[in-house]
Design a binder for these strands. Sequence first.
DNA 1: GGCTTAGTTCGATGGGCATCGTACCACAAA
DNA 2: TTTGTGGTACGATGCCCATCGAACTAAGCC
Lengths: 104, 104
Amino acid sequence: MTFEHPDREDLDLSAVLHALSDPQRRRIVAELAAGEEPRPCGSFAPGITKSTRTHHFRVLREAGLVEQWKEGTSKMSRLRRDDIDARFPGLLDSVLGSKAVAQV
Amino acid sequence: MTFEHPDREDLDLSAVLHALSDPQRRRIVAELAAGEEPRPCGSFAPGITKSTRTHHFRVLREAGLVEQWKEGTSKMSRLRRDDIDARFPGLLDSVLGSKAVAQV
DNA sequence: GGCTTAGTTCGATGGGCATCGTACCACAAA
DNA sequence: TTTGTGGTACGATGCCCATCGAACTAAGCC
């Protein structure tokens, strides 16, 4: 089963910035950017409820920041860095920059 | 009369990203970045009400994106590009990049 | 078939936000 | 001093959002 992922050309800057404006989501994105292995959703953002996590991942996915797919019983996530970089060059790097991430 | 402007060290990434996630505010920021002369608030974002414009400028000011001061009967605004660039290098440039601005 | 594990869905809650209109304030010009 | 102009304050409206718990689903394992 797949989910709706916006095409690269359809990425909306407002949606991306809004998705990145939440500290929890920014933390997820930072973790995804750090370790390059796709990981199940459950291994992110400890301390928040499952349903809240589901919500955050949907926001990230619908903004086009992450790609998700099912693998067995868990759901994997990958950062769509290439697409984001193509549409908004430098944005992800600046948001994930050292000072910025420290502020998560 | 002055207004509360956050210090450079107190700039909050979440607040900045949230402020930039609104198309109207992004348009204001883009106009401020384009013409380097400070301009009165009223000359921005035609088509929205005065009160809405006041609201947007307050969000931008409290996020630390613009500096404002009174000059006679009007209120001038200036983009705090130096502070933003110092805290979040590359962020403003990527948000105001050609593709990005075209999407405003 | 049952149990477990990983996520989703749903409803609720509390809060914030973008927008508006109207009333108000401060300053300047006539 | 009166009038106009640029901007603020306030209240209302309608919407969206972050968070939670509880009930549910789907996939694997015993």
